[in-house]
Simulated scan of single mutants.
Amino acid sequence: MSLNSLDIAKPPEQTRVVVAMSGGVDSSVTAALLAEAGYDVVGITLQLYDGGAGPRRAGACCAGQDIHDARRVAETLGIDHYVLDYEERFRKAVIDPFADSYLAGETPIPCVACNQTVKFRDLLETAEQLGADALATGHYIETRQRGAHRAMFRPRDLDRDQSYFLYGTTTAQLDFLRFPLGTMTKDETRKIAERFGLSVAAKPDSQDICFVSKGRYFDVIRKLRPDAGDPGDIVHLDGRRLGRHDGIVNFTIGQRRGLGVAAGEPLYVVALDAASATVTVGPREALTTRRIRLRDLNWLGARAPEGYLGAEGDLFVKVRSTRPPAPARIVAATGGAVEVELVLGEDGVAPGQACVFYDGIEAGAEVLGGGVIAEGLPAGRLAAREPVAASA
């Protein structure tokens, strides 16, 4: 039997596809295109936090208005639609670890944890229980069959590339997932929404973290962890004590504004020590990081990380979602830990963020996997460190 447009050996009308519908234009168009192609489409919207630990924020992913919008789209398309209460799962898998990570002096990415757990683990399991052949989302990413499994690639619209948040997807999950928007631009997506007469065609994209109100992370953490915010010292790299602070959760690596200290030079947060509640600040040049150590590696590439040891020119990494991939080398790989040399250096690398690997920088470049930044080694500290011996 020939493959359908989702690379599944069934006619579309015999292929059930669960679509994760957030109430935004991307997932709505995904559902519309699949329904138009004749697939048996079931829309599912997850209630993740509304009324839970995080404060409400209008327009955020999976809040009350978004659930309403998803229902309206499903009605327009004539597809079945269900709302599942995943609030408790979301709290345990995403919100609680987010708070704990900040208290440990890290800068976490809850969207990565959400994709790894609630969406691509729990929802995928639900889709299988519904007899689905695939779970489709509105993410801008491409997957293609390569041998026995599917591989992940950067999308056509690099301005919408969401691979940084999807690096933690496992090979087994990729085999079940489909991303119909990977070959489209955002403008094309909105035009398709208009063609279908969807009420969300002009709806703005959600911004920031869905459960954080007005970007005030500390308010969420204070509510979840009332004992958070132990005061401590703000010290300069040269050892001077410059002042006091109310909690390291108010700071992140690379921060300049709101430090609460007066100095004759611009100062940036260069280190956070949760054990001593110490915030270390210094000049901008102290932010330059040359090497990072990763934990919780999720590798997707056909070539193992050890195969890139010392290699030049065929490996690139993103250490922030808003930055393009930059040249890198793997200098150590043992077990689940990898150490990476940033060829050009990066400013403001923070523990808790992701480092995502690519085999190129262009659209269609393969996403090789990634890990959580456990430690960044600024240039000054690296110079005083023992050389790292590459090992397999």
Results as ranks from 00 to 15, higher is better:
residue 359 D to K: 09
residue 355 C to K: 10
residue 339 E to D: 13
residue 329 R to M: 06
residue 365 A to C: 13
residue 352 G to D: 11
residue 322 T to I: 14
residue 361 I to E: 15
residue 316 F to S: 09
residue 326 A to I: 11
residue 318 K to R: 15
residue 359 D to I: 12
residue 356 V to D: 03
residue 319 V to P: 00
residue 363 A to W: 04
residue 354 A to D: 01
residue 316 F to C: 09
residue 334 T to K: 14
residue 326 A to V: 09
residue 347 D to I: 07
residue 317 V to K: 00
residue 334 T to C: 12
residue 345 G to T: 05
residue 334 T to P: 05
residue 313 G to K: 11
residue 367 V to A: 09
residue 362 E to N: 12
residue 320 R to T: 10
residue 364 G to I: 02
residue 354 A to V: 00
residue 353 Q to G: 02
residue 334 T to D: 14
residue 358 Y to K: 01
residue 325 P to R: 02
residue 338 V to R: 01
residue 323 R to K: 14
residue 316 F to Y: 14
residue 316 F to N: 07
residue 366 E to S: 11
residue 333 A to Y: 01
residue 316 F to I: 12
residue 367 V to Y: 05
residue 359 D to Q: 10
residue 363 A to H: 15
residue 367 V to I: 13
residue 340 V to H: 03
residue 352 G to S: 12
residue 352 G to Y: 06
residue 313 G to H: 08
residue 363 A to Q: 11
residue 318 K to A: 06
residue 357 F to H: 02
residue 335 G to P: 03
residue 346 E to F: 03
residue 344 L to N: 14
residue 328 A to G: 07
residue 321 S to E: 15
residue 340 V to S: 08
residue 357 F to C: 06
residue 343 V to S: 12
residue 325 P to H: 10
residue 370 G to M: 11
residue 342 L to Q: 02
residue 364 G to S: 08
residue 361 I to P: 01
residue 351 P to I: 09
residue 366 E to A: 13
residue 349 V to S: 04
residue 322 T to P: 03
residue 364 G to Y: 07
residue 339 E to I: 10
residue 322 T to G: 10
residue 358 Y to S: 08
residue 346 E to R: 09
residue 343 V to Q: 10
residue 368 L to K: 04
residue 317 V to C: 11
residue 322 T to S: 15
residue 325 P to L: 09
residue 355 C to G: 07
residue 350 A to Q: 04
residue 318 K to Y: 05
residue 369 G to A: 07
residue 314 D to Q: 13
residue 347 D to S: 06
residue 317 V to E: 00
residue 369 G to V: 03
residue 317 V to F: 04
residue 362 E to D: 15
residue 337 A to R: 00
residue 321 S to Q: 13
residue 324 P to F: 13
residue 321 S to C: 14
residue 351 P to G: 07
residue 339 E to P: 01
residue 353 Q to L: 10
residue 369 G to H: 04
residue 368 L to M: 13
residue 330 I to P: 00
residue 331 V to L: 08
residue 336 G to V: 14
residue 314 D to F: 11
residue 353 Q to F: 02
residue 323 R to M: 11
residue 319 V to W: 02
residue 344 L to E: 14
residue 332 A to Q: 14
residue 318 K to F: 05
residue 318 K to D: 06
residue 330 I to T: 03
residue 351 P to M: 09
residue 337 A to I: 04
residue 365 A to F: 13
residue 358 Y to I: 11
residue 348 G to C: 05
residue 341 E to P: 03
residue 344 L to I: 08
residue 353 Q to K: 14
residue 356 V to C: 05
residue 355 C to P: 03
residue 340 V to Y: 02
residue 328 A to H: 01
residue 350 A to E: 01
residue 356 V to L: 08
residue 361 I to R: 15
residue 350 A to C: 05
